[in-house]
Amino acid sequence: MGNEKHSAYDYLRHSKKFPSVWCSGCGIGVVMGAIIRAVDSMALDPNDVVVISGIGCTSRMPVYLDFNTMHTTHGRALAFATGLKLARPDLQIIAVMGDGDALAIGGNHFIHAARRNIGITSIVVNNSIYGMTGGQVSPTTPMNMRASTAPYGNIDPPFRIAELSIAAGAAFVARSTVYHSQELEKYVRMGMETPGFSVIEAVSYCHTTFGRLNKLGGAVEMMRQIKDASITKQAADKLSAEERAGRIVRGIFHHDSSRKEYTELYRAIQENAGGAELADGRIQKMEMTF
């Protein structure tokens, strides 16, 4: 260790934003690390990388990252990102969202972004609860678990993020956990390399609210629970539905790079209308000015 610089150091903003807003032991930092390593491994110019978020614990991530970053309104990250991607197809856009942000208030934007297959990498950090605001029930809270707004146990079945994304039209859908940080990094990278819309579900935990309300222990215990509950897709495929219940299945659920990405399709419209060159010229003008 000594004076050796951490590999993530150059991608972080050091002005005055640390320590982070996250509770110690939170899994979101692991996801942030995976994103940094994925960007680093692709040798992208940070000037071309955008990280957009909505509202919630996960959505506080962009402020720490030294990219073009935007923290928008609750649930709307993908709608903002869609406008930006269409205006600037040259940029690599990552949307980071929590489960409530992406699937409850932002659920409509989520399925429509997938339907369009627009080139945005969306990362859903799924901790099964609204953490920042004190542990309210979320669209991925498992049945019978407790939340501050489900004090007698949750009766709303959770969304299955992967299946929902595939049905809606995403090009790349994968799930890993904050325990499997290297696998997560790989999936984030694969998502970024897929031309269309990609969804990476990062299963995490919230020991501060979910863990406390459901007596599941602290960060270490919950990390261990994720590790123990997780199983690869290959292994899960050999199990019966009953055996699979309650397990976290990790792996790539869908990968189809053949479908045209949305901004490419729109570019064809511009070409037919005779405006493609004007669009290119406009984008060129946006490049560095100093």
Binding site: T72, A81, L84, A87
Partner: peptide, 30 residues
């Protein structure tokens, strides 16, 4: 599209303005 611009019909008005702001952040009048 004739002027090199982009039109998108979003899923609702909330998304409509969000996309507009996103495009403007990209340097495009929206």
């Amino acid at each position: 599209p004739k002027h090199g611009g982009v039109f998108i019909q979003m899923e609702d008005e909330i998304a409509g303005l969000a996309a507009v702001i996103g495009a403007s952040v990209g340097g495009v009048k929206a």
